[in-house]
Design a protein around this nucleic acid. Structure first.
Lengths: 347, 347
DNA sequence: TTGAAAGCGCTACCAT
DNA sequence: ATGGTAGCGCTTTCAA
């Protein structure tokens, strides 16, 4: 009583051969408009959907796309990017009869194993490559597997696959300008893991921007986790000549940094201005609300899915440059207090 | 040069028929130990893995499990549970040649659509049912689809499917006791969406525990989002007779609540004790570090995956009760300051 | 214990 | 424009 309907039932109902049903379904040439209408109607009435397994057996497709997320155990729980990314991709996939196969792994070794497994089991037709590393050998591994893939972020060398990217330079420029206009002269940047492409690029933009404005730039390296964001903030605040503003590589680190500032009795944003990046909604609900750069993860998702499907189906797809990241001004940035060279304990 | 190896190649290499290879592979009776060894070795040398599509066509299996996560746009980005849940499930799935199909949707309507699609396309062999609602009609929808499923959380009525659950009563009891011993007499609970099963159960335990200890209990309803956690906290702090301690239904709300307290100039935990639930690592990196109840999401994942596979393969699987949640004492809870009936602005 | 052959549901090719 | 048919790679009878 369940789904036992096959293409034959539809063919019979429409009074045609199953070959024709197949052509009609995949709207290919060779079917009269009249027949096509009859077939589609019959399929609809019977509630028939082609079985992707059977289809795949002939077409060598899986009608599935793979996403492998690599997160260390303590970063895993707070990352704001992926749920939205997936939701964005999902919208495109559902519409095209595709499905998302997801895997969450702890490290690069396991990650490559996962690509290999999904590929050798022919589970997916292509991959999303995220969290691009410097000189990322996953690109070679992936092309070695011969699976189509799109990469999120701009690799140093030609990747041989479509690249989805977003330019942060304008946003970072706006952000630094915003702080400079408020009167900050000494600004820190807490980076994400600079083995990651986007963390390094952001750092470069930050440094270039400070230099061109004649601002003092100080850099602390972290890894995108709140833990290291907090530790970096402590180092910054303990330094004899602490910065009056800190820009973090992502919002979770910024939020952790705010906690450290509170812990030290600093009032925000008076004693310290704080800004994030990769703007997540959580920035709206912390105190003070967090100035950040928007990133629209779901836009990344839908664009990447669309590009990957195009690549799979047409054998090629163009790179996509997403709209520039833009500054979201909120309450965590303000003019610095007059005295900045001592820890100010006043409120 | 890629994977063009089929079961026939293996059969040829081992000098047997492909039927025998199949039997050997699925270690079924009827294969001599000697032949089996030869076959498995040949498969290994050729690097052959059976194609799940072809297998599924015969066995009517997809060798995939479905997880549909429903999140409203602003809760989506901060939920700590799912990444770990998936990582935990993944470990079991990979080992058993299965794969996880994931979908992220905005509401229940879309969620049911997703179950239907995955089911009618025969994409998965079973589902994980999470975020159980009161009188959850997804259970009926799912049994209507005839797909095996396991449910996370304890449904009111017999679900007709295996139930994975964790008892929070002991943990909540420990938590309330902890606060009572510190001297708190008036304790608030900011709930998650009480349409959700686990939120309601936690509330009940909280109320029962306060009653049995003769404590005043005050309740504010929220929805697990930081936004509403913050709003609920504002309502609590503005009340004439504010509580000295607040227990939140999850950690993200607790963290948002801490921000509100900071915003009002309260010092934590002196002026207000705060505790979370569903303990995530992020609690370690906020200030003050967050007292919470542990929840081990990856344990939920591995257990649920194991149970679901057992159900699919054997047609039945027992319910599982995970170890009781336990109190994680951290720095956000302490004895209340002497004066509690006025907003204390002192530091 | 083993081999041969008939499906599983679809696509694709060859006729017509 | 349409119908018939041979696979796709595996599992599962049925014989031997």
């Amino acid at each position: 009583m369940d789904q036992k309907i096959t293409i034959d039932d539809v063919a019979k109902a429409a009074g045609v051969s199953k070959g024709l049903v197949s052509l009609a379904l995949n709207d290919r040439a060779g079917v009269s408009a009249e027949a096509k209408g009859r077939i589609l109607r019959a399929a609809d009435e019977l509630g028939w959907r082609p079985d992707p397994r059977a289809r795949g057996l002939s077409t060598r497709r899986a009608y599935a796309l793979g996403l492998i997320v690599r997160r260390s155990p303590h970063v895993i729980e707070v990352d704001p990017f992926f749920a939205s990314f997936i939701a964005g991709a999902e919208a495109v996939l559902a519409e095209r009869g595709q499905v998302l196969v997801l895997s969450v792994v702890p490290d690069v070794r396991t990650e490559v194993d996962a690509y290999r497994r999904l590929s050798s089991e022919r589970r997916v037709d292509g991959f999303f490559l995220t969290d691009l590393l410097d000189d990322d050998h996953r690109i070679a591994a992936l092309t070695g597997l011969g699976k189509p893939a799109v990469v999120l972020g701009r690799p140093d060398e030609a990747a041989g696959m479509p690249v989805i990217s977003r330019d942060y330079s304008a946003g970072i420029s706006q952000l630094v300008a915003h702080l400079a206009e408020l009167g900050h002269r000494r600004i820190a940047h807490v980076t994400g893991n600079t083995a990651m492409q986007h963390a390094r690029i952001r750092l470069q933009h930050f440094l270039a921007e400070c230099e061109s404005r004649g601002l003092e730039a100080v850099v602390e390296e972290a890894d995108f986790s709140p833990e290291q964001g907090a530790a970096a903030t402590r180092r910054l605040l303990e330094a004899p000549d602490r910065p009056t503003a800190v820009i973090y590589g992502n919002d979770p680190m910024a939020i952790a940094g705010m906690a450290v500032a509170h812990e030290r009795g600093l009032s925000l944003p008076g004693d310290l201005s704080i800004a994030g990046m990769d703007g997540s909604d959580m920035g709206e609900w912390v105190y003070p609300t967090l100035t950040s750069l928007d990133n629209a993860p779901s836009q990344w998702g839908s664009t990447a899915a669309d590009t990957l499907l195009r690549l799979i189906e047409d054998g090629a797809a163009p790179d996509v440059e997403l709209p520039d990241a833009e500054l979201i001004r909120r309450a965590s940035t303000a003019a610095p207090a007059r005295t900045t060279s001592h820890h100010s304990k006043e409120r």
